[in-house]
Amino acid sequence: MSCIVEMKHVFKSFGAVEVLKDFNLQLTEGEKVVIIGPSGSGKSTVLRCINRLETIQAGTICFEGQEINDQSNLCALRTHIGMVFQRFNLFPHKTTLENIMEAPLIVKKMSPAEAEKIAVELLARVGLADKRDSYPRELSGGQQQRVAIARALAMNPKIMLFDEPTSALDPELVGEVLGVMKDLAREGMTMVVVTHEMAFAREVADRVIFMDQGIIMEEGTPAKIFEAPTQERTQIFLKRIRH
């Protein structure tokens, strides 16, 4: 198995606030990693460093062996890395279909017919074939998030990053989004998911990472982290989210 993302000795700060301190992470192709940890521990920052929405102060991040600090092909790099946001961030002035077609058209310069074909297929895949002409505001949160996943998949990424994809959803809508993500996992996609949905982590994750204050406190299989955490901080955190 080859390494797809490698973060080595990464330091990231916002002004005086140190968010990542000597952070190290290796992701293998096809691997599913779930990141948990208290708010403000730097989980989003890790994801945002991988597709370089944030620039780091020190260390290296490699994508398929290539150092990503090489600015010149940033857009090309990002086409390989899909990202799904907590607040969906669909384009409100575009229909569902247009949201998905936009990047293939503009970035990949696909023909409209080709882009539409991909978009229609993806919409069917996330179970929203009948919503192709709806605007985001006409969809429920769960539907919006599924469209957002389809939009990211339209670029045919090699890895998908999910930043708390279900935290902004009403509880009854969480399942439909996790369902789509599980399908994706079954198909072999490399995934990094920040989430506190433990049942999902247990079912899908190869590895669970507990982050605290900008470092990896503890990591291991879901069974190990959830049933037998060795670090006191992990234990406290798990106790808190179980209520």
Partner: peptide
């Protein structure tokens, strides 16, 4: 919106 657009490779 900008982040979503950039993350798609725009």
């Amino acid at each position: 919106q900008m982040e979503a657009a950039l993350s798609l490779g725009m």
